[in-house]
Simulated scan of single mutants.
Amino acid sequence: MHTGCMSLTSVRPPMVTVPLSDAPRPALDLTRLPWPGEHVEAGGHRLHIRRTPGPTDDTAVFVHGLGGSSLNWTDLAGQLSEHAQGIAVDLPGAGYSQPPDGYSFDLSAHADVVAEFVRGMGLGPVHLFGNSLGGAVSMLLAARHPDLVRTLTLISPAVPDLRPFPTRMSDPRIPFAMMPVIGPRFRRRLAALTPMQRAHQLVRLCFADPGMVPPHRMAETAAEFAARARIPWAGAALGMMTLGLFRAWLTPPSQSLWRIVPKITAPTLVVWGTEDKLVTVRKAPRTARLLPRGRLLVLPRTGHVAQIERPETVARAALGMWETVAEDRW
């Protein structure tokens, strides 16, 4: 039963509150190791995924953001593991999923890959989760493949936000590294950063309170940076994924993500942190308002990755949605 509720913040017009479930969940264990990873071929695609064991009659699928990977869902997947099995994917070009030759890295391509992969695994409808770029990908997937999505949870989805880009990157030198002529000099400087320096940059950008990240999680992040530095295609793929997101933001209004949102029929929970530096929380009310079955949860003292910063609260909100949908009251 969902006996708790959390009120919405800064929403006009006002919407109903988001139910917070009191259903049993495992105790949050911040020392938990990442869920085991494996490469799986399904639907014509080979992706690296991390599986969370759980009841097989329900499946949660998790899609990470730009520069992220399946590691971003360790704690939230654990919180939901008594209610659904979990599958966190590495998008092509991210984590350990090698992109196929000629891959476009557009949001549409990502959405099609995840949909075909989920369908190829014989899953669906699933509880779909997306953070940042993964949120935009999940919106496209839900709009195009409604039969695959039972519920949708969007955590700071990367809707168009055209504020100056350099201030919203882990290192302001990244845009210059993509430019001709001066690019090589900036790429050499970026390459000289240690994996731990990169991890600290990322945490400062994405978290409202970087000090809340335990040392072993910092070590995991640094280890992932070190591992990706040894993958030949990783750097170029990240650059192409970044350009793919920018192209989606700069597309004509008739093709904008804002035109996609009203086409999503799945019950949708939108979660946003008030301290999000990457995609402003000011986009949250419009996002939720355009969703035919959307509700908004705004979390104080939270940044861009609420599923990592507030996994217990996000899990209770997601479970509250699942329960309310099952009772046909969403």
Score class of each variant (00 low, 15 high):
residue 178 M to V: 03
residue 248 A to Y: 06
residue 82 E to A: 15
residue 134 G to M: 07
residue 284 A to H: 02
residue 136 A to M: 09
residue 144 R to Q: 13
residue 157 P to I: 12
residue 304 H to K: 13
residue 13 P to C: 01
residue 77 A to N: 14
residue 80 L to N: 11
residue 70 S to K: 07
residue 297 L to D: 05
residue 43 G to M: 09
residue 212 M to L: 06
residue 245 L to I: 09
residue 248 A to V: 10
residue 198 R to Y: 01
residue 238 L to W: 10
residue 191 A to I: 01
residue 136 A to S: 13
residue 49 I to E: 14
residue 97 S to R: 13
residue 32 R to Q: 05
residue 221 T to P: 03
residue 146 P to M: 04
residue 13 P to T: 08
residue 98 Q to T: 15
residue 230 R to L: 12
residue 111 A to Y: 04
residue 41 E to I: 06
residue 34 P to G: 07
residue 260 I to V: 15
residue 311 P to L: 06
residue 304 H to C: 09
residue 287 T to I: 12
residue 80 L to T: 07
residue 45 H to W: 15
residue 276 D to V: 11
residue 178 M to K: 10
residue 203 V to G: 08
residue 64 H to E: 09
residue 171 D to T: 03
residue 2 H to L: 07
residue 6 M to C: 13
residue 62 F to C: 02
residue 120 G to V: 00
residue 328 D to S: 12
residue 253 P to I: 11
residue 308 I to P: 01
residue 307 Q to D: 15
residue 119 R to E: 13
residue 131 N to D: 05
residue 315 A to F: 14
residue 259 R to W: 01
residue 178 M to G: 09
residue 324 T to W: 06
residue 35 W to R: 12
residue 276 D to F: 11
residue 292 P to C: 03
residue 178 M to D: 10
residue 134 G to C: 14
residue 314 V to E: 01
residue 325 V to S: 00
residue 128 L to D: 03
residue 132 S to K: 09
residue 288 A to K: 08
residue 32 R to G: 09
residue 86 G to M: 07
residue 221 T to N: 06
residue 301 R to K: 15
residue 152 L to G: 04
residue 147 D to M: 02
residue 214 P to S: 03
residue 79 Q to A: 10
residue 317 A to W: 08
residue 290 L to H: 05
residue 299 L to R: 05
residue 86 G to A: 13
residue 159 V to W: 11
residue 181 V to I: 11
residue 272 W to I: 05
residue 310 R to T: 11
residue 75 D to L: 15
residue 209 D to E: 12
residue 187 R to Y: 05
residue 259 R to H: 03
residue 294 G to S: 10
residue 120 G to R: 00
residue 292 P to Q: 02
residue 65 G to E: 03
residue 30 L to Y: 11
residue 259 R to A: 05
residue 30 L to H: 01
residue 268 T to D: 12
residue 272 W to A: 05
residue 79 Q to G: 10
residue 182 I to D: 08
residue 220 E to A: 08
residue 127 H to W: 07
residue 258 W to K: 07
residue 318 A to K: 01
residue 133 L to C: 10
residue 259 R to T: 01
residue 7 S to C: 11
residue 39 H to W: 10
residue 38 E to I: 08
residue 211 G to E: 12
residue 299 L to F: 13
residue 205 L to Q: 07
residue 73 W to C: 00
residue 125 P to A: 05
residue 4 G to Q: 15
residue 272 W to Q: 03
residue 216 H to R: 12
residue 224 E to S: 13
residue 67 G to H: 03
residue 28 L to K: 09
residue 37 G to C: 14
residue 28 L to D: 00
residue 179 M to E: 05
residue 139 M to Q: 11
residue 209 D to H: 13
residue 296 L to T: 02
residue 32 R to I: 00
residue 233 W to D: 07
residue 330 W to D: 10
residue 321 M to I: 08
residue 263 K to I: 05
residue 97 S to E: 10
residue 23 A to D: 10
residue 298 V to G: 02
residue 60 A to L: 01
residue 12 R to P: 13
residue 84 A to G: 07
residue 193 L to C: 00
residue 69 S to F: 08
residue 243 L to C: 04
residue 218 M to T: 04
residue 172 P to E: 05
residue 28 L to I: 08
residue 91 L to Y: 02
residue 27 A to M: 06
